[in-house]
């Protein structure tokens, strides 16, 4: 996702980080300001918009009925898709999803799936035949760095806001009834991404820092503070010590964020 960044700017970012500071005045372990709005798309069963600094991600959840996967007949289905909409950045192009949007969707998916955030067994209408399918569609509206954390946060916020249609079965047909119930949830994973510049770790890299970091690591942390998904990205590397340090920081940041959001 890189465009060119001047060497002068790169040097400036590196020098500041050496002193424990960042271009936008944050400390190395600080998040940008986070704003979450829920239920802003009335036609969707659930929705949320997250502002992470200037990064803006909208997630809509739609619920339909469908068939379960043959190996999990007693579970509903979760599908996560991400669109890097061309209006969000000059580096995004219209067309089929590229590897960046597929990676984004799959990393968010893994955080939700592996923490068993959705109580999938409660989404079964008829075992092996009919279940609810939860579509989580991530829409990136403005790209200013760290799409993973913003999208993961927006996805969970949208799921928390999701209402399932009530239904009854009439002659083997599913009839949608009046009224809604809350989507059954068991966990609220929070994903924390760190970038590495000159061997130093920074939390929540924004766009210009993303151009400067050689690698990033994203960790999804569940309610108990355990790790439930990890993805390393970028063409650099981490030492084993840096990985453990990143895991420690991620746990600390996720706990603080969870408290602040009251999740």
């Amino acid at each position: 996702m890189s465009s060119l960044i001047t060497r002068v700017r790169l040097k400036q970012i590196e020098n500041l980080i050496e002193k424990g500071k960042r271009l936008d005045g944050r400390g190395l372990g600080d998040y940008r300001e986070i704003k979450i709005e829920q239920g802003i798309i009335e036609k969707a069963e659930g929705s949320a918009r997250v502002l992470l600094g200037k990064t803006e991600v909208l997630v809509g959840v739609k619920i339909e009925t469908g068939e379960p996967f043959p190996d999990t007949p007693n579970e509903g289905v979760l599908t996560v898709n991400a669109e890097l909409v061309p209006l969000a950045s000059p580096s995004f192009e219209a067309g089929p999803p590229d590897e960046n949007s597929i990676e984004l969707a799959r990393v968010v998916d893994r955080g939700i799936r592996e923490s068993k955030a959705i109580d999938a067994e409660k989404l079964v209408i008829e075992p092996g035949k009919k279940v609810f399918v939860v579509f989580v569609d991530i829409y990136v509206l403005n790209h200013d760095g760290n799409l993973i954390d913003a999208a993961a946060l927006a996805a969970v916020a949208a799921l928390r806001n999701t209402k399932m249609p009530n239904y009854e079965i009439e002659n083997g047909e599913v009839k949608i009834k009046q009224g809604y119930t809350q989507l059954p949830m068991r966990a609220y994973p929070i994903t924390v991404t760190l970038g590495k510049i000159n061997g130093k770790l920074i939390v929540d890299p924004w766009l210009e820092e993303e151009e400067a970091i050689d690698s990033r690591i994203s960790l999804a942390i569940n309610d108990e503070g355990n790790i439930c998904a990890i993805q390393k990205g970028g063409v650099g590397y981490f030492t084993p010590q840096q990985i453990l340090e990143a895991a420690r920081i991620a746990k600390e940041k996720a706990t603080a964020l969870r408290k602040k959001l009251d999740w």
């Binding site: 569940n222 790790i227 453990l244």
Partner: peptide, 25 residues
């Protein structure tokens, strides 16, 4: 990269405590 002690791929799915994760790595 064995001689540089550098991890170039790291992914995870499932649930691990911090200690289990350290042991797994």
């Amino acid at each position: 990269m064995p001689n540089l002690n550098a991890v170039t791929l790291l992914q995870m799915d499932g649930i691990l405590t911090f200690e289990e994760f350290e042991r797994a790595v």
